[in-house]
């Protein structure tokens, strides 16, 4: 478990550091604070080049070749550049889970990842989950049946996390589901429906 999570935490820290250091850059430019920020200067990485990089992303079994700035998050690339807007931005800080996607099968917060760092990995978004346009993935159907949502904004992230925990074997009891699903906030609080939806798919033993 620890090893699996290391990836996410690492991603989180890097993103945090970048955000933090760009804030520090800002402060450094404000004259009154320069003197007090000597220590911060040493930690400051080189300013990201404004130039773009040509990258290749594998998303939903399709290959996208795209020029991005190194600072563009995977979430913003999905939403703003590739029009894959099913993945939502609720907080942009890895706190709400609305942006959950699968990266090489692992549930990941797309807002904490830089797109340039995820070439050659298999990325799956909510748009890539259903087997076909006319058919829902079993967990998508279960969310509809069990009303595992209200406004629907957190739902893509909930479903991506739900599929991942079923595949990983972490959905064996309501309590286990609740624990593993607690990285996805639902402000409408459809938690009971979410647990029932995931539980029903896990019980049916369907391949997800």
């Amino acid at each position: 478990m620890a090893e699996k999570d290391t990836y996410l935490i690492d991603g989180s820290n890097r993103r945090w550091f970048l955000k933090q250091s760009s804030a520090l850059t800002g402060l450094l430019l404000a004259p009154p604070l320069v003197a007090t920020s000597a220590q911060s200067t040493q930690r400051q990485p080189t300013v990201p080049p404004s130039g773009k990089r040509a990258i290749t992303l594998r998303i939903n079994k399709k290959t996208y070749k795209i020029d991005v700035e190194p600072r563009e998050t995977l979430l913003d690339v999905l939403r703003e550049r590739l029009d894959l807007t099913g993945t939502k931005k609720g907080c942009d800080h890895g706190q709400c889970g609305a942006c959950t996607v699968h990266v090489d099968g692992r549930q990941s917060n797309a807002c904490l990842m830089l797109a340039v760092m995820h070439q050659h990995q298999e990325i799956t978004t909510i748009e890539g989950l259903a087997p076909s346009k006319s058919q829902l993935h079993p967990l998508q159907a279960a969310f509809v049946k069990h009303d595992g949502y209200q406004c629907g904004f957190c739902t893509p992230g909930q479903i991506m996390s739900g599929v991942a925990i079923i595949r990983q074997g972490h959905a064996n009891s309501p309590d286990e589901i609740r624990e593993w699903m607690s990285g996805n906030i639902c402000r409408c609080a459809a938690y009971r429906g979410i647990v029932e939806a995931i539980g029903s798919v896990q019980k049916e033993g369907k391949t997800v």
Binding site: T85, V144, F153, I159
Partner: peptide
């Protein structure tokens, strides 16, 4: 009955305001 916009919500095809291009 199930929500009439359920399929859109679970497939990510529902366009919320920030999703409009």
């Amino acid at each position: 009955i199930d929500r009439i916009d359920g399929t859109q919500k679970v497939t990510g095809s529902a366009r919320y305001s920030a999703d409009v291009k």
